[in-house]
Design a protein around this nucleic acid. Structure first.
Length: 112
DNA sequence: CGTCTGACCAGTG
DNA sequence: ACACTGGCCAGAC
């Protein structure tokens, strides 16, 4: 566990309930712009019992990164839907649930 | 040292 | 919408 790892974990832990963020956004928030792969690498080796909202991290396209249909994939969809996030075909509409979707919510009063 | 491999990404066509 | 490119970099070998 080094400094970069700690900052990445902190950035993920900071994603509000019912919202999602991309790997790239997490990396940037952790002060490591352009290093989305490092975020993915870290999550890949995240211990089972670790308390972390890993499922709120998606690709920049809104797609769930895990292989479609895999156990992790289904678990991620389940956890997201459990907090009100819409997941359709393994994908989340970032315009409504992304962390930078404030304007959308103000105009349309979507999730909260 | 060199090479390969990722829960990735933005740009281009 | 899809395919490809070059960029990213820590670890395994």
């Amino acid at each position: 566990m080094n400094e970069a790892h700690a900052r990445i974990y902190a950035a993920i832990a900071a994603i509000p309930r019912g919202r999602v963020a991309s790997y790239g956004a997490i990396a940037a928030r952790a002060g490591l712009p352009g290093r989305a792969r490092l975020v993915g690498k870290l999550l890949g080796e995240t211990p089972e019992g670790m308390i972390l909202p890993w499922y709120r991290v998606l690709r920049s396209s809104g797609q769930v990164a895990l292989p479609t249909g895999s156990r992790g994939f289904r678990e991620q969809c389940r956890l997201l839907r459990a907090e009100g996030v819409v997941v359709k075909n393994g994908r989340v509409p970032l315009a409504s649930f992304g962390m930078d979707a404030n304007l959308d919510r103000a105009l349309w009063g979507m999730p909260d």
